[in-house]
């Protein structure tokens, strides 16, 4: 019996276990305080869909051996630039989303490549460097948002101020463009079909890439660089490729996130976005050295359901808004756990 428990524990892992128990407690509590389950489910589906691409963006980086890519804001910035340009030209609907992507992705390739070059010179310190590269790019872009010569009145401050607004409404461009695609209702639950399909498509592409010769090479370069060398694989090239793919997915991720959210968040908005994503994939059972698409799905689902269920329950018990505090404690706690654990395969 004890062996079975041990085995189960080893497979599930501590973070997933704790989060699941938490979730269970909150679900029971939700039932007790009579929260609307259909509404929670609907909002959960949306939140999983909108956050999952940013979590998926971590996969190529982990596979290529650069660990948790805390420099996600690099890709996020590219996505935001794409979106802002699309809005500036007053595009709407699917065209605005497509143009935003068309601008963002090439940018992300360039940025990812340059950042990949940096990462190859700082092997072993990717996480801390990534964090501060992300921070400085976000804060540097603050100056850009302020100075960039955008004219569309929907985006610039209405009265006298210069530069872009803190939040930009997307209702005239690509608000809910994916969520509403083929959307339908089961009872009271709204299904964001397009959003989930789009995420599914990206997952499939990432999976398919893993099956190619290059995908295999990247995986090997990440899991054992010396082995990769003995197979004739260029490790540095694979690390750059992983970084580029991660940055591309991050820029797609923020566009998916924004269309669902209905706003673009500029300035300091994206500063901390990498941490919940990292926490989600870790909760899903990934380690900084090993990750799979299943980890993305499970992790995002667990983490987001916790975030959907817990705050209303807590609010019944105490006043005030704790979703932010709650998210902060969970995500940083999970990352700390990952940092303080000795993962198999060593450093």
């Amino acid at each position: 019996m004890k062996n079975i428990l041990d085995l189960a524990y080893n497979i599930i892992g501590l973070p997933r276990l704790i989060i699941s128990i938490f979730l269970l407690v909150f679900l029971i509590a939700a039932a007790v305080v009579d929260l609307s389950i259909p509404m929670l489910t609907g909002s959960l589906l949306v939140r999983v869909g909108m956050n999952a691409v940013l979590v998926l963006a971590l996969i190529p980086a982990i596979k290529a051996g650069t660990g948790l890519n805390l420099a996600l804001p690099l890709g996020i910035m590219c996505g935001l630039v794409g979106a802002v340009v699309a809005i500036e030209y007053k595009l709407s609907g699917a065209a605005s989303f497509a143009v935003a992507l068309a601008i963002a992705v090439p940018l992300a390739i360039i940025v990812g490549y340059l950042y990949g070059l940096v990462l190859n010179r700082i092997k072993g310190q990717e996480m801390i460097v990534g964090t501060y590269v992300g921070f400085s790019v976000v804060s540097g872009m603050c100056i850009f948002w302020l100075l960039a010569p955008f004219k569309n009145p929907e985006m610039v401050w209405a009265y006298g101020g210069t530069g872009l607004r803190n939040t930009i409404l997307l209702h005239s461009s690509f608000d809910k463009i994916l969520n509403d695609f083929l959307g339908f209702k089961i009872g009271e639950i709204e299904i964001p079909t397009g959003l989930l399909l789009f995420f599914g498509l990206l997952c499939f592409m990432v999976w398919l890439f893993g099956k190619t010769r290059t995908g295999n090479a990247m995986h090997v370069a990440g899991s054992n660089p010396r082995f990769a060398l003995s197979c004739g694989i260029n490790i540095d090239k694979m690390r750059i490729l992983g970084t580029v793919l991660s940055t591309i997915l991050a820029c797609i991720g923020i566009l998916v996130y924004s269309q669902s959210y209905g706003f673009l968040q500029l300035y300091q908005g994206p500063l901390m976005m990498a941490f919940p994503a990292a926490a989600a994939i870790l909760i899903g059972g990934a380690s900084p050295k090993k990750a799979a698409i299943s980890h993305v799905i499970i992790g995002t689902f667990l983490f987001q359901s916790l975030l959907v269920v817990a705050p209303p329950v807590i609010n019944v018990l105490v006043e005030g808004s704790f979703s932010e505090v709650f998210r902060g404690i969970v995500s940083n706690g999970v990352i700390l756990y990952a940092l303080a654990t000795k993962w198999e395969g060593g450093e």
């Binding site: 090997v220 899991s223 054992n224 010396r226 082995f227 060398l229 003995s230 090993k290 198999e344 395969g345």
Partner: peptide, 10 residues
């Protein structure tokens, strides 16, 4: 170095 170079351990 079987473990370090020769094999993908996991």
């Amino acid at each position: 170095d079987r473990r370090g170079v020769g094999l993908l351990w996991d």
